[in-house]
Nucleic acid binder design. Structure first.
Lengths: 149, 149
DNA sequence: CACTAATAATTTGTATACAAACTATATTTA
DNA sequence: TAAATATAGTTTGTATACAAATTATTAGTG
């Protein structure tokens, strides 16, 4: 049977394989970050704070494309590890301002190189042209799904 | 600064965006499957059993690229929903043979079309050539990471 | 044949995703 | 100005990922 007519072709080739690749990326990053007391998801949060400066939990949730409840829990862990701190917003008592500690700042700056070298290995042997197409497809998939959800 | 020299380019463009796309795919499928009492991950398990016939939990874990502990829990839920059953392996008392029930069989056959139409929307506007490059990049990323883990 | 090593599956613990409900506070409305 | 509505963040519950340990059973070894 022509593969493109197979009822599960897209489900397998796009769905299953994207999800599987995502799990491997997360697992690989977790292995590298473990010795710093971090996980891949926590690294994303630290990265966002480092890139964009202090922000509310709401904005951090948006910036990292994570559920607010999930961000609450991740912040609990990062706060306990003294990588960041929650400060009350004097202008809005519902709200916090999240900022990196000096420890968090230093570690984040240090980890950029290590994480990049992990990804250099992950993409080894893939042409820049193919990486570019991959990125564009990811963007289009994301735009399509944002309009379906 | 040239983007390709940006220390977090690959982390963001490959890492973050792949993981984000994966979450959106899972979320979208969950929305569609919810009314059948299923999740995206459970659907993967049913699909594998439908495609390849009865098998042990160990083989099912390999076929769906899931942790064995995770498969145990997913099977608990699918068994409770009467989509499948665990039968003792007469040749090896450590082992079960997992098989779909009639209910599971019928529902799995029914869902192929619905899931495919979800993916038709997800990939809307993306050329077959780009989808093919995307699939090849996913494969290469997967091969690279399997050798790193 | 008894002991050792390996295997199939389960259990425990933790992290994250996410739906839904809740609490405290701010904003809007009549 | 009081009541209604909305918002920021938290809590609860469930599903899944995954590491690590455990249990019951099978296979291998001396």
């Amino acid at each position: 049977m022509d593969q493109s007519k197979d009822m599960s072709f897209l489900d397998e080739e796009i769905g299953f394989n994207t999800v599987r690749t995502s799990k491997y990326i997360t697992r690989l990053l977790n292995q590298h970050l473990k010795s710093y007391g971090l996980t891949a998801e926590q690294w994303t949060v630290l990265k966002r704070l480092h890139q964009r400066g202090n922000m509310s939990q709401k904005h951090l949730s948006e910036a990292s494309d994570k559920d607010q409840a999930t961000v609450t829990k991740i912040l609990d862990l990062l706060e306990a590890g003294e990588f960041l701190e929650r400060k009350r917003n004097p202008e809005d008592r519902r709200s916090f301002v999240i900022g990196l500690t000096k420890k968090g700042e230093a570690l984040t700056e240090q980890l950029y190189c290590e994480v990049d070298s992990v990804f250099q290995k992950i993409v080894n042997g893939i042409s820049e042209k193919d990486i570019d197409t991959y990125r564009q497809v990811l963007s289009k998939l994301h735009r399509n799904m944002k309009s379906l959800i």
